[in-house]
Structure formats: C-alpha cells, structure tokens
Computed example of a mutant assay.
Amino acid sequence: MQNKFYGIIPPVLTIFNDDGSIDWDGNKKLIDYLIKNGVNALFFEGSVGEFTQLSLDERRELAKFAVDYVDGRLPVIIGCGSCSTYEAIDMAKYAEKIGADAVAAVTPYYWPLNDRELYEHFANIALNIEIPIILYNIPMITGQNLSPSLILKLVKKFPNIIGIKDTIDSVAHMRNIITLVKQENPDFSVLTGFDDHVLNILALGGDGAITGCCNFAAPVLVDLYTNFKTAKYDEFIKYYHIVRNINSIFDLGESIIGVLKEACSQVVGVNNFVRPPILGCSKENAKKINKILKSINLL
C-alpha cells in the first residue's frame, strides 16, 4: 500500500487566547485554511505546535479535537514526543485509540543518548502501537541526531516505522537516508523540515516537506510541490524564489514560533499569542513581517 505521507504537510501551530488557554475556534480556522489550500496531511503537536508548553492532559485534549474536527478530510499525525519513553508510549497509544492516522516521535532531548538508547526508545514505541510512526530528527534542538544506519536498523525491524521528518541542515544526511532506507523500503517517506531544502529533497528522490511556513503560506508551498511533480520546473523555480523571500522572516532575530504566529495571524486571522517562556513577535518586527507578506502577495 502506498504511503499516505508525502507532499506538503504543515506542522500545525496551536492557537491560544491571550490568557494562554487553547483557542478552539482559532484552531478550527487554521485547520480549515490549510485544508482549503490543498496540503496533503496535518501534523499536530510538533515543535512549532508548542507541545513542550502543553500539559499531557492538554495534549490529549488537543489531539482528540484535531482528529474529530479534521474528520477524515486529511490524514492526521499526532506528535508523541517526550523525554520519557513511557510518556511517549502513553501519548502514542492515546493517538491510536482516538483514530489518528500516524504518530510522529521526536528524539528525546535533555540527556545525550547513544544509538542503543535511541533504538530502544523508538523500538518501544513501535512495539506498543500498530499505526504508522514517523521519526522526527531535529538535532539542533534535541541534541540527538538519528544516523541513516540507525534509521535503517529500525525500519528493517519495525514495519510501522514508515517515514522521517529530517529537520537538519545537511543535504548529505538526507541523501544517505534516501539511499540506504528507500533501497530497503521504497515507500519510506523522507520529508525535510526546512523550506530551503524542498528542492534538494525532491531532486534526491525524497517525498516532500513538513515546514512551519506552510501555516501561513500553504498556497505557495503546495504550488511549489505540484510544479515539481508535474515537471513544470520554470514555475517551480519561481515559487522557490518566493519561498526564499518568505524565509527572510527568520532573519529578524525573533523566535521561530513568534514569527510564524505573527505571519499566521496576519494571513489567516488567528491570534498570535505564544506560551512562555517563548515570547511573541515585537511590534516593530510585526510591521516588517507585514511588508514581507505584502511583497509576495500573501496579503
């Protein structure tokens, strides 16, 4: 069966009210915007979804809401990341119970782990659920890097490990995953976490991207992917340059989540509150983001 995780998949922002409570209507509005603009799946409770700022009860509540509200319109991926293997398993089992299509499991963070420990962490998750698992590699945040050889070892042993979000600024790392793992399982999804690497991942034979900018620039990224898949390379390059301009919001010296939420607020019309300790965007940089968005016709 063909893997359903490919193309452009947003790591969906979690929308909050100004008092920090979850804004359910705002989350519905964002979900509807993303579905309307043709994304291929939805990933909730990832890094920019602020899962680290949610309690376990809130994570369960948000996961149930997401599955119910999407209601089969697109595949739903629920993040089960945790420093604790037990907690990750608990969240993964809950996601399976409520009908999620897959879970995404980020490498544990805080303690440095060796390959044996990383293997056991993901193996224990895989042994406890039957739904697909997408590995999530983001070493710049977690301090852990999943090597292509370790990924291959996991994929050989556990058929429900079906993909990876590789958020790493290394073309060689992505290339080696594609070369090693897709030879073992051609349906294994290799997805970049960086907009800058969409061209690289697709040209190397990967499957798409899970990028934060999709929360407010879904039409651009969907058209980017579509033009590549239909061999309209001149159009692809045009959209790739637009994505390059979009990424200039990350050069403003603000937190990634802060600028994403500000841009999303301006384009989609949702609240821009960010839970502490991360702070929202300054008013000065909000004006700069507005100028960038207008320059690429997103406003």
Rank of each mutant, 00 (worst) to 15 (best):
G72L: 09
F51V: 13
N37Y: 00
I9C: 05
K232L: 11
Y225K: 02
F216R: 06
I22R: 04
E117Y: 04
F188S: 05
S265C: 01
V171Q: 15
T167N: 10
M91I: 14
Y86Q: 14
I77V: 10
G280L: 02
I162S: 04
A172H: 15
P186T: 04
L154D: 04
I151H: 11
N290K: 15
I246D: 09
D25I: 13
V106N: 12
S265M: 05
D223R: 15
I249V: 00
V67S: 06
L180W: 15
F43H: 09
K28Q: 10
I292T: 09
M174L: 13
I22G: 07
P139R: 06
A95E: 01
I210A: 08
N185F: 13
A95Y: 01
I177Y: 11
I35F: 02
G81N: 07
A172N: 14
N124S: 09
T85P: 10
S84E: 07
I201A: 09
K294L: 12
T142M: 08
L202Y: 00
I141E: 12
G163I: 04
S282D: 01
F194M: 14
S170F: 02
T179P: 10
Y240S: 11
F158W: 09
N3M: 06
V70H: 10
T179Y: 14
Q53G: 15
I131Q: 06
C281L: 03
A172S: 14
G280D: 00
L298S: 02
N227C: 14
G81L: 01
G253L: 01
L30Y: 05
L204F: 01
K261Y: 05
K261P: 04
Q266I: 04
P159L: 05
P112Q: 12
N3S: 01
H121I: 11
I249W: 07
H241T: 10
R59V: 06
N200D: 15
G72D: 11
V270P: 00
K36C: 14
R116M: 13
V220G: 12
L113Y: 06
C214Q: 13
N297K: 12
K28D: 01
L13T: 08
H241P: 07
F250G: 00
L42P: 07
I133R: 09
R60V: 11
A218D: 01
K232C: 06
K36P: 11
L299I: 14
G72C: 08
F5P: 03
K153I: 10
M91Y: 11
G99P: 03
E120K: 11
G143R: 09
A102S: 13
A231V: 11
F216C: 08
R116V: 13
R116Q: 15
A217E: 04
S170K: 10
L224D: 08
I249G: 00
I162L: 09
L293Y: 02
V222L: 03
I292P: 00
L199G: 13
G205K: 04
P75L: 03
L152A: 15
T192I: 08
N176I: 11
K261L: 00
I246P: 02
E61I: 12
V39M: 02
N290C: 10
H121P: 12
S47I: 09
E262G: 05
V103S: 04
M174W: 11
F122Q: 04
Q266K: 06
I249E: 03
K291R: 13
L118P: 01
G205M: 00
D195S: 15
I178A: 03
R60K: 15
